[in-house]
C-alpha cells in the first residue's frame, strides 16, 4: 500500500503476491498450538502478478474458493500478503458489506460520520457532503433517530450512499449489487455508471456473468489461487463452457 505520486501509472500493481492461510478447524487455543506444533496451511493465492491501469474495468470470475475474495481483500489493504508487493494508486472503496460498521445506538448522522471516517474520509469532507449523502439515501426524515429503528433496506441505502460519496479512485463491487427496492437499484446503477464515465478504475467479482459482460472490458479468470486467464470478453464464453472449472 505505497501511495505513488507519479501520474499515468498503474492504479493497482501486484508483484509476486502470495497469501497463505493457516487452517484452524476449531477455535484456536494456546494448548492446541503447543500440542500440535505447526499448523496446517493453505495457499489462497500463489505468485500473482497483475497490473490494472487507471480507468480499466475488470471483471474477476472463478469458481467458489478460487481466491477472488482474497485477491480483492489484498488489493483493498484489508489483509496483507504473505509475500510479494502490492502497490495501489488512489483511494479504494469496496461496496461489499455495506452495512458493516454501523452502530445501532447511534443516529443516522452520527453513523455517517463514523462510517465515512472508517472509509478514509476527513471530517470536513463529510460535513460538506452530508446533505448529498442523506438525499441520495433518502432517509432525511430518520436522520436523527437511532439506527436500530431503520429497516434493512434503509441501512443498505445509507451504506451505499456513504461509500459512493467518499470519492474513490478505485471501486470494488461484488455480485450483482442489489440494494434496496427497484427505484434505488436504478439509482445505484446510474451512480455506478457515473463512475464508469468518470473513468474510475472498477473491479467486479461476481458469478453473474451477464453483469460482468455488461460492465467489464477486461476479464480475469482466477482458479486455484492463480490467474488462469487474462483477456477480453471472449473469455466469458469459454468460462461458461466449463473450460476452467
Amino acid at each position: 500500500m505505497k501511495p505513488s505520486t507519479t501520474k499515468n501509472q498503474a492504479a493497482i500493481k501486484l508483484v509476486g503476491v502470495s497469501k497463505k492461510y493457516e487452517i484452524h478447524h476449531e477455535k484456536p487455543t494456546l494448548v492446541e498450538k503447543f500440542v500440535k506444533g505447526r499448523n496446517e496451511t493453505f495457499w489462497a493465492l500463489r505468485d500473482i502478478n497483475l497490473t490494472i491501469k487507471k480507468g480499466e474495468r475488470v471483471g474477476i470470475i472463478g469458481p467458489n474458493g478460487s481466491g477472488k475474495t482474497t485477491l480483492l481483500k489484498i488489493i483493498a489493504g484489508i489483509t496483507t500478503p504473505t509475500s510479494g508487493v502490492v502497490e495501489t494508486n488512489g483511494k479504494i472503496v469496496s461496496l461489499i458489506d455495506l452495512e458493516a460498521g454501523f452502530h445501532p445506538d447511534l443516529t443516522g448522522e452520527q453513523n455517517i460520520f463514523l462510517n465515512g471516517m472508517l472509509l478514509g474520509m476527513k471530517k470536513g469532507e463529510i460535513e460538506d457532503k452530508l446533505d448529498a449523502i442523506i438525499r441520495f439515501a433518502d432517509i432525511k426524515q430518520f436522520i436523527d433517530t437511532p439506527l436500530y429503528t431503520y429497516s434493512s433496506g434503509m441501512k443498505l441505502r445509507l451504506g451505499f450512499s456513504i461509500a459512493v460519496h467518499s470519492d474513490p479512485e478505485i471501486l470494488m463491487l461484488d455480485e450483482g449489487l442489489s440494494v434496496g427496492d427497484a427505484d434505488f437499484q436504478k439509482k445505484s446503477w446510474e451512480k455506478i455508471q457515473e463512475f464508469f464515465r468518470k473513468k474510475k478504475t472498477v473491479l467486479i467479482a461476481s458469478h453473474i456473468l451477464e453483469y460482468i459482460q455488461k460492465t467489464c472490458r477486461r476479464i480475469i479468470i482466477v482458479g486455484k489461487g492463480t490467474i488462469a486467464e487474462d483477456g477480453n470478453q471472449k473469455l466469458i464464453g469459454r468460462y461458461q463452457r466449463g473450460d476452467y472449472v
Partner: peptide, 9 residues
C-alpha cells in the same frame, strides 16, 4: 470484526 473486514483503517 465487522469493521476489520470492511475497510483498511
Amino acid at each position: 470484526r465487522s469493521l476489520i473486514k470492511k475497510a483498511a483503517f
